[in-house]
Design a protein around this nucleic acid. Structure first.
Lengths: 351, 351
DNA sequence: TGTGTTCTCGTAAACGTTTACGGAAAATGT
DNA sequence: ACATTTTCCGTAAACGTTTACGAGAACACA
C-alpha cells in the first residue's frame, strides 16, 4: 500500500531527456558521452554539463543489450560444504582485491552463490546462457573440472583461482605453490628432527591436494625418508573430516611425530581428535597447516601455517582475466597468463 | 591470439531462433514461454520442447530493458575496515541464506563490494542509477544512515540487516536483539557475583552499539548497580581497536571484574591487551562477547558468546524484501515487515 | 567558380524481449 | 444461415542504448 512511490521521481534520466533538454539528437548525445571524435568540442561540453546537471547515468540493460556485453564479471562462490553456521572467510579478501581491480575498469563483480555442497554446474550454465556476465572466475578447481570443460567448450571467457588438468592452457590461472609449501613444511620438520610426518588432505579431487602431496613426497624422498602410505589420509574438507581421519594415521603401527594439514578446518578437527587422546600440538606432536586463516592464529596453540596474499591475488587475477579478453585488453590483444605464487610461512607455536 | 572462439557457436539461442524453427511468430513464442493464457496448449508444448532442444534461455538484458526490472538484488558488502588480510566471515552464511531464498524466486544476488573503509555512498548511487538491481540490501546500519536517507528519498526499494533511526518505518528490517543480549550478559555476570562490569563497543555510530549499551545500562540499574562511565569505552571496530581501548577501562580507579565486548574482533584485541598485563580471561576476569564467530570458539579460552542464526536470517530478510516490493509480492500487495530476532548464548570458558 | 575534403550532426536500424491491439478462424448460440 | 463470442496468433511498438550511413555546411584548393 505504501511502497508505491517508485515513480514519484524519475530516478535516472535517459539519453532522450538529455537530447530534448539540449535540443539535439540522441545520436549526438550518445557520441558525446562516449567520447567519439565526430562531435563538436562545444556541444560535447554542453552534453557533459547537462548529464551532470540532470544526473544522467546510462541504463545498463540498454547498453548491455546493444553492445552484447554486460560489463560485469561473475565469481562463483561455493560455500564450504558441511559448514552451515560459518562459511568461507578465505575468499573475502580475495574478493576485495578482485572487485577493486574490476571497478577500476568500470566492471561490476557479481558473486553467484550456490547451495553448500552442490557443484554449481547448473548455476554456471545459467549465468553463461542468460548472459549475466561477460566472464566468470572459478575457485577451488578440481583436478578434472567439468566447469572448466564446459566453459572452454562453449568458448566463454573465464579465469581460475587454482590450476586444473582440464581445459589445457587456454585460460588464465593464478595458483599458490602448494608443492613448494608441502616440501617446505617437510624440510622444516625434518630439520627439527622429525622422520615420521603425516599428511592430511581433502578428498574430492581438489587439485591443490595433489600438488601438496607431490611436494610432500618429493621432499621426503630427498631426505631419504620412505613415504609411508599409512601416514597419508584423505578426509572431507571440513572440521568433521579432520576429526574423523586423524585417528586413522595415529593408529598406524609407527605413529607420526608431526602432521601437515592441507586445510585449516581439517586441522582444527584433527587437533580436537588429538586432544581427546591426550596429545598436545606443539608439545607432543608438531603441526603445520598449509593455508592459514585467522582461525590458525587464534587457536591454542597458535598454528604454524603458510599464508597466501589473498587480496593481491584477487587484484592480479582480475588483471589477468581482463588481459585475456580481447574486448577489454588494450590494443595489444589478448594474452593468457599463468602464475604460481609462493606461500609465506608464519611460524607460530604448534611445531 | 587464441581466445577468439567466443563466436564459434551461438551460446544461447534467441526467441527469434525458436520462432524460425517452429515457423511461428516471436510474439507467440514469448507468450508460450511466459505462460500466458492466449496460446494453444499444443503450440505451447511445441515451443517448450523446442526451447529445451535449442537450449534456449532468455537474454537478461533484453528482458530487463523491456520489463524495466533487472531481476537481481544487490547486497552492499563492506569489508571490515582496517583488516586487510582476513575480512568478514560474518556475512557469508547470511549471504548463503539470502541468495538461496532469492534463487527460489528466480532472482540473482549481486554482491557489491566497496573498498575497506569507504562508506559506499557513491557505489550505492551507481547501483541505483544504472539500474543494476531492483532493490538493495544494506548491512551494518548506522544510527543515522545516509544510505537509508538516500534510498528512501529516491524511492528505491531496500531492506536492512539492522535497524536505524533514519528513514522511518518505511522499509523492511531484520535485526538482532542487542538490547536483550546486553541485558542477558549483565544478568549472567551479576548472577555470578560480578558488580564491576565493563562494556566495550564500536565507535562510528553503528546502531547495534547503542542498542547493546541500552540493554547493558538498564540491566545494571535493575540490579541496583550504578552505571560507571569509566567502565564504558568505544574503540575502532577491529582487533587493534579492542587492544587500544582495553587499558582505558582497566586503569580506572576501581577496575572491572568482567567485561562485555560488542564485537568479536574487538574482544580478541582486548584479550591480547589483558594477556600483556597478566590478566587471564575466564580466570582473573570474566569475558562475554555479543556476536559470536568461529574465532570465539577456537580462542583460548573459548569465549562465551551470543550466536545469531545467520543463514535463516538471510532467508528471512530476502522474504521480507520480496514481500515489500509490489512487483514481487503476491496478489496481496506490499507489506513492510520489521523483525527483531533473539540471540542465543553459547556458554564457553571465558566467564 | 567548381571540386574535393573535413566537421558535425540527424536518421534509422539494431540488440532481445514483452505486450497492446486487431484480425482470422473456429466455436457457440439462435 | 446468420450473429456473437471465444480462441489463437501475427504485427508492431516499445524499453535505452550504440553506430553505420549519409547529408548539409564550412572550408580549402585550384
Amino acid at each position: 500500500m505504501i511502497a508505491k512511490k517508485q515513480e514519484n521521481r524519475p530516478l535516472a534520466s535517459s539519453i532522450h531527456d538529455l537530447a530534448r533538454h539540449l535540443n539535439i539528437s540522441i545520436g549526438t548525445v550518445s557520441r558525446a558521452l562516449n567520447g567519439r571524435a565526430d562531435v563538436n568540442a562545444d556541444t560535447r561540453q554542453r552534453v557533459l554539463d547537462a548529464a551532470k546537471k540532470l544526473n544522467y547515468s546510462p541504463n545498463q540493460s540498454g547498453r548491455s543489450l546493444r553492445r552484447g556485453a554486460t560489463h560485469s564479471i561473475a565469481f562463483m562462490l561455493q560455500p564450504h560444504p558441511g559448514d552451515q553456521q560459518y562459511g568461507e572467510p578465505f575468499f573475502i579478501p580475495f574478493l576485495t582485491g578482485l572487485q577493486a581491480r574490476l571497478a577500476e575498469s568500470g566492471l561490476d563483480l557479481i558473486v553467484v552463490m550456490g547451495a553448500p555442497g552442490d557443484y554449481q554446474q547448473e548455476r554456471l550454465r545459467r549465468v553463461v546462457e542468460t548472459r549475466r556476465a561477460d566472464a566468470v572466475v572459478l575457485a577451488w578447481t578440481r583436478r578434472e573440472d567439468e566447469r572448466i570443460d564446459y566453459l572452454s567448450e562453449v568458448g566463454f571467457p573465464f579465469a581460475t583461482l587454482g590450476r586444473s588438468l582440464s581445459g589445457g592452457k587456454s585460460y588464465p590461472s593464478l595458483d599458490l605453490d602448494f608443492e613448494k609449501a608441502g616440501a617446505d613444511a617437510v624440510d622444516r620438520l625434518v630439520a627439527r628432527g622429525h622422520r615420521r610426518i603425516a599428511a592430511i588432505r581433502p578428498s574430492l579431487n581438489l587439485n591443490f591436494g595433489y600438488l601438496f602431496l607431490d611436494g610432500y613426497c618429493k621432499a621426503l624422498q630427498r631426505h631419504g625418508i620412505e613415504v609411508d602410505p599409512g601416514l597419508i589420509a584423505d578426509g572431507f574438507i571440513n572440521e568433521a573430516g579432520g576429526y574423523e581421519v586423524m585417528p586413522q594415521v595415529m593408529n598406524s603401527k609407527d605413529p607420526p611425530t608431526a602432521v601437515i594439514f592441507n586445510n585449516d578446518a581439517m586441522a582444527l578437527g584433527g587437533c580436537k581428535a588429538l586432544a581427546e587422546i591426550g596429545i598436545k600440538p606443539g608439545h607432543d606432536i608438531a603441526v603445520i597447516v598449509i593455508v592459514d586463516t585467522p582461525l590458525c592464529r587464534y587457536f591454542s596453540p597458535a598454528l604454524t601455517a603458510f599464508r597466501p596474499p589473498l587480496e593481491p591475488m584477487g587484484r592480479r587475477l582480475a588483471e589477468m582475466l581482463l588481459a585475456s579478453i580481447p574486448a577489454y585488453a588494450g590494443t595489444d590483444g589478448a594474452r593468457i597468463i599463468h602464475e604460481v605464487w609462493p606461500l609465506e610461512l608464519i611460524a607460530r607455536d604448534s611445531d
